[in-house]
Amino acid sequence: MDVQALQTFVAVADTGQFQAAAADLGISQQAASKRIATLERHLGVTLLVRTPRGSNLSLDGQVFLPHAKKALTAFEQAEESVRPGSRPLRVDVLNRRIAPAQAVYRFYLGRPGTGLDAVTLRDENAGRAARRVLEGTVDATFRALPPGELPSGITAERLLDVPLQLLVGPSHPLADANGVSPADLAGHRIWIPGIRPGTEWAAFYDAFAEAFGLSIDALGPNFGDEALMDALADSSSLATLVGSEDRYLWPQGHDLRRIPLHDPTPVYPHMLLFRSGDRHPVLTALREHLHTSAPGAPGDVWVPERFDRP
C-alpha cells in the first residue's frame, strides 16, 4: 500500500479539503486527487465523498481512518529506528582484552551515554567479518585485511597500529631486558595458543616468524588467557607476544614482564572496516577519535608487506 496515499487520505480527512491537504503536503490538488483515487481502487471502496463544502468521510472511510493513522505511525517509527544515530553503533572488537576494545572503551568513557554496542565475532576471519558488515550484522569491525581483499562496498581505514611486546616469566633469559630486537627472539619458544589457520592473525604471525627466523606455535589445547599466564610464570623458556595496548591481568606473584620489541618494532595493523558511505554519527565520531588519539607507532616499524598500506 502506498504510504503517500495514506498520508494524503489522512490529511484530507483532517482538513476536510483536498486543496488544504495538498498545500500541507506540498503537492498539487490534482496529485492529491490521484493518490486518493489510487487508494480507493486498491481497496475497492469509496473513502471520501466530495460535497460543495469540501470532502466528508464515507462510512468505509470512517472505519479505515484510525487504521490508516496507526499504519502511518508504525511506518514513521520504523523509519526513525534506522535513521543514522537512532540506534546504537554495533562494533566488533574481536576480543575484549586487546587494543581495539580498549580504544573503543576509551572513546565511550569520553562520551558517556553514547549509543554503542561492542561485540566479538571471534569465530570469523577478516573476509567473513567484512561480509557481516555488508549484511548489517555489525556496523564496523577491527581487522587486518589487505587492501586488495576488501569486498566491494567496504571501506577500510588503518587507524590503530599496535606495537608488539614480548611477555615472559621472571626466570626467562630475557626477563630483565629493557627491549629486544625481533631477531633476538630466534631460538626462543614463542607460544600463542588459539591461532586458527585461515585467520588474518595467523597470516600475520606466519609472516613475522618467516621474516625474522622465529619459531611461533599454537600447539596444545587453549585453556584461556589465565592458563597462559600461569604457564609463563612457571617456565624459564616460554614466551608469548601481546600488543602494547592489550589488557591482560595476572596475580602479582607471577611477576610477568612486558618487554618492548624494537629495531624494528613489529606492529599489528588494526583496520576499521565499515560500509562505504555509512553516515552513523557515532561511527564518524569514533573514526575521528581514533585518528586523533591512537598511540603513534615508532618510526622504524615492521608490518607484513601484504598489510603495509595506510
Rank of each mutant, 00 (worst) to 15 (best):
L48S: 05
R50Y: 02
Q102H: 06
G115S: 13
R83L: 02
R132Q: 12
L43D: 12
E80R: 13
K34P: 03
D139Y: 06
A31T: 10
R122E: 15
V63N: 07
G115A: 15
G136L: 01
N56P: 01
T120L: 11
I36L: 14
R96W: 01
E76V: 06
A129P: 03
G136K: 05
L72I: 06
T46K: 10
P112Y: 02
R131M: 11
L72C: 15
Q77R: 14
R35V: 05
R106K: 12
P100W: 03
E124T: 03
V49A: 13
Y105N: 15
D92T: 02
S81W: 05
D123Y: 04
G115E: 13
G115H: 07
P100A: 12
P88V: 02
Q62I: 01
Y108K: 10
R53N: 14
G85A: 06
V104G: 10
A99C: 06
L72Y: 01
F107A: 11
H42C: 11
V63T: 13
D117P: 05
V91A: 12
E79L: 03
E135N: 13
G85S: 07
T51Y: 06
V45P: 07
L47C: 11
R111L: 09
A71V: 02
R122N: 12
T137A: 14
S81V: 03
T73Y: 04
E124G: 00
Q102P: 07
F107N: 10
V133F: 00
L121T: 00
A99I: 01
D117N: 15
T73C: 08
D117Q: 14
A37N: 12
P52C: 08
R111Q: 11
D92M: 08
G54L: 01
R41L: 10
K34E: 11
G85F: 02
T114V: 15
A78N: 08
D60T: 01
A78R: 03
A129Y: 03
V82Q: 15
S81C: 05
E40A: 10
G61R: 05
L121Y: 05
L134P: 13
V63L: 15
Q77I: 02
D92A: 11
R87L: 00
L116D: 14
T120W: 00
T137R: 13
